[in-house]
């Protein structure tokens, strides 16, 4: 590795070649994830209404639960941003605090979502009920699975932060996981609109 002079403003995660390359690579991976979620959205929109005579979203969606989930996830994105802010200011404590709150909000989101899914299944709308519900559970479920993996990943990083503190490597990992977290938030906004709002208005 060549020795490069970094301006004092360069964040730690950008101060290594590995850092820069991995961050760029992750942005491109997010591009692929956009293609993935776009396909799931297209599938969902094509299968809207195909409830095979069974229950439909207009009967089962409830605004309150969805609003809570949205509030939790959007706030967690904000707290994630705060965490990065503290990280950039070299505050390990601040990073821990706000990343911890982010995880708690994320877990809250998951909790409400699992409750929502169980409720639908009890009402007779499961993955196996009809094409519409298959599409719903796979689209929203894939997002939820991504959130779950994000939480697990961030926990692993927190352990490494405890072990090693703020280094170019650990900050790189935190930054990349934050990109992932914000991405999931953006996807949720599309889900909120195209699935829940559209489904309740339809």
């Amino acid at each position: 590795m060549e020795s490069v002079e970094y301006s004092p403003n360069t964040p730690l995660e950008y101060q290594s070649e590995t850092g820069r390359l991995n961050i760029l690579g992750f942005w491109i991976f997010l591009g692929a994830e956009i293609a993935l979620f776009s396909t799931l959205f297209a599938t969902y929109l094509v299968l809207v209404g195909r409830t095979a005579g069974g229950p439909g979203p207009e009967e089962l969606f409830e605004l309150s639960g969805v609003l809570i989930e949205t509030f939790l996830l959007l706030t967690s994105s904000f707290t994630c941003g705060l965490a990065i802010h503290y990280m950039r200011n070299h505050s390990l404590k601040g990073l821990f605090l706000w990343l911890g709150i982010t995880l708690a909000l994320g877990l809250g989101f998951l909790g409400f979502e699992i409750y929502e899914f169980v409720h639908y299944i009890h009402e007779g709308a499961a993955l196996t009920t009809s094409a519409y519900w298959s599409a719903f559970f796979v689209l929203v479920g894939t997002h939820g699975a991504h959130v779950t993996m994000g939480i697990a990943w961030i926990i692993l990083i927190l352990i490494q932060l405890k072990q090693r503190g703020l280094t170019p490597d650990t900050t790189r990992k935190v930054f990349i996981s934050s990109l992932y977290w914000h991405f999931l938030d953006v996807v949720w906004i599309f889900i909120f609109t195209a699935v829940y709002l559209y489904g309740m208005v339809m």
Binding site: G49, R50, T51, A52, G53, G54, E59
Partner: peptide
């Protein structure tokens, strides 16, 4: 299809399927 509750279903046109 006796298992299905038809009371709230939209039966007027089978165009949906």
């Amino acid at each position: 299809s006796s298992e299905m509750d038809h009371s709230e279903m939209n039966h007027d046109d089978s165009e949906k399927d």
